[in-house]
Nucleic acid binder design. Structure first.
Length: 234
DNA sequence: CGTTTGCATGGCTGG
DNA sequence: CAGCCATGCAAACGT
């Protein structure tokens, strides 16, 4: 049915461009500029197997329960167009900026006594945070570069360990779209519930240097520190 | 009848 | 203009 073009890891993309809108996180210690996904060497034999738990404890977590101001779900049932910004709801600026600073990451790796290489992060969208689906839409480039090659397959299961040491068997696959592929990571429902996954929060994927095992960290949305200062107020 | 899975549409952004 | 990706929706399933 779907005869996916068997493309190597590197899609015919830009030579030395950073992922659009995505900011791959530099591995700690590396002072390279932006690591282009096209240059990232992907382990041909990914060690995505149920490994033993690592001493990884809590990578990144904050107990702030603040939700973004966009948590409201657009319950639009008009059987016509969708996602039309009819209601001037300036949607969240969905970006994939990592929320973990290099300093934090370095400390994380140190504490976990394993070299975790941050791969990429994504800020959860409304659909990502939908409990019913329990699936996460992955940025195409990131999926193709940092995750195993699934061209031609219907998908594979990946063992991903969370910050609490739990192993999750997630289903990584893609949908064929009129304009290419759309990558997804499914099976996150329980994790979403457990972590109270909400719109605006950020998931970060890491790879352990030693064996390539995948890890995922979760970070609640942090309201920017808005310091109200008045120009004429002391 | 409630869920889940997969697809199709089209807003939106970068080239 | 190309194509990424958020998300509505419907076919399949499950209960």
């Amino acid at each position: 049915m779907l005869q996916a073009t068997d493309s190597p890891q590197v899609p015919s993309a830009d030579p030395e461009k950073t992922i659009t809108g995505v900011y791959p996180i530099k591995p700690p210690g590396c002072v390279v500029r932006n690591v282009s996904p096209n240059e990232v060497s992907i382990p041909t034999t990914p060690g995505f197997e149920p490994q033993a738990q690592s001493p990884l404890e809590e990578i990144e977590e904050e107990d702030s329960v603040n939700s973004p101001a966009e948590t409201k779900r657009s319950r639009r049932k008009n059987g016509g167009k969708r996602r039309k910004r009819t209601h001037n709801q300036t949607q969240v600026q969905y970006r994939y900026a990592p929320k973990t600073t290099p300093a934090e990451l370095r400390e994380i790796c140190r504490e976990s006594k394993s070299s975790l290489v941050p791969l990429f992060s994504k800020e959860l969208t409304v659909s990502d945070a939908d409990m019913r689906n329990g699936r996460l839409v992955l940025p195409k480039r990131c999926a193709e570069v940092y995750f195993p090659n699934i061209s031609g397959q219907q998908g594979i299961f990946l063992m991903v360990q969370d910050t609490k040491g739990n192993d999750w068997e997630l289903y990584f696959h893609y949908w064929s779209n009129s304009n290419g592929k759309m990558y997804l990571l499914e099976g996150l429902k329980d994790y979403m519930v457990l972590m109270k996954w909400e719109v605006g929060d950020t998931v970060t994927f890491y790879k352990r240097e030693e064996d390539g095992k995948l890890f995922m960290g979760f970070k609640k949305y942090q309201a920017p520190n808005v310091v109200l200062k008045r120009s004429t107020d002391a």
